[in-house]
């Protein structure tokens, strides 16, 4: 059974939802504390949503220096899979495991509602269960979700197909450049996005359209290339 480490920082608040979604997809979910340096041989590491360290200084800026992040850096450098959801995405950008940064929403308000997103890339460990172009409503809940990057980085992301999720149907909730909701590293092994599929992974919450991300992870073959449905 594929093992997934869900990292908990002080201020993480989507850790149980993520754990539930991972376990519900049939993977072996484990919690890892931010002071731990042992990822328990997990094949996939998830940095869940929340407000790690109270978002002090900048969202994700302090969490990046947690002991566990050194282990995550090593895991990623060795080709291991890492998914950052919302605050996890912010942490991955601060840690420079993903390019760009997430700044204050353009309308300055915290946005908490389901928005339409489109799956742009399906050959990653966490999106293989979807068909390219799939559109679905997934909740977002963030104050600092406006994705920015310099022009060279944006050109590279588009040229290499590294935009994994994009806001669609005119529903960009935060002013992100090019409607970018999530990106990945060149190998597609490190992925970060703002929407919260773990909140729509069980019909009890009103929708389970996000369960595919966790089914993708549970079905992923570490070391091999991710299976794609396109």
């Amino acid at each position: 059974m594929l093992r997934v480490a869900v990292v908990r920082f002080p201020g993480s608040n989507c850790d149980w939802d993520t754990y539930h979604a991972v376990a519900g997809a049939g993977a072996d979910a484990r919690f890892v504390w931010h002071r731990d340096t042992d990822l328990q041989q997990a094949e996939v590491v998830i940095l869940p949503g929340g407000f790690s360290y109270g978002d002090y200084l900048r969202s994700g800026a302090i969490a990046r220096f947690s002991p566990v992040m050194q282990a995550v850096q090593k895991h990623a450098a060795a080709g291991g899979a890492v998914l950052g959801i919302c605050n996890g995405f912010q942490i991955l950008c601060e840690a420079q495991l993903l390019p760009g940064a997430l700044v204050r929403n353009d309308r300055l308000t915290f946005v908490s509602r389901p928005v339409w997103v489109r799956v742009e890339r399906t050959d990653t460990f966490c999106t293989s269960a979807y068909t390219r172009g799939t559109e679905m409503r997934i909740p977002v809940a963030h104050g600092d979700g406006c994705y920015v990057a310099d022009d060279d980085t944006l050109r590279l992301l588009e040229a290499e197909g590294r935009v994994v999720l994009r806001y669609t149907r005119g529903e960009n909730p935060n002013g992100s450049v090019a409607d970018i909701a999530g990106v990945c590293n060149p190998a597609g092994t490190v992925v970060g996005f703002m929407p919260h599929p773990e909140r729509y992974a069980d019909p009890v919450t009103g929708s389970d359209v996000g369960a595919g991300f966790f089914r993708s992870i549970a079905a992923w073959l570490p070391g091999g290339t991710a299976r794609s449905t396109t």
Binding site: L57, C93, V148
Partner: peptide, 8 residues
């Protein structure tokens, strides 16, 4: 390294 984000 910490106090400013070099991207933004």
């Amino acid at each position: 390294r910490l106090l400013a984000n070099p991207v933004t």
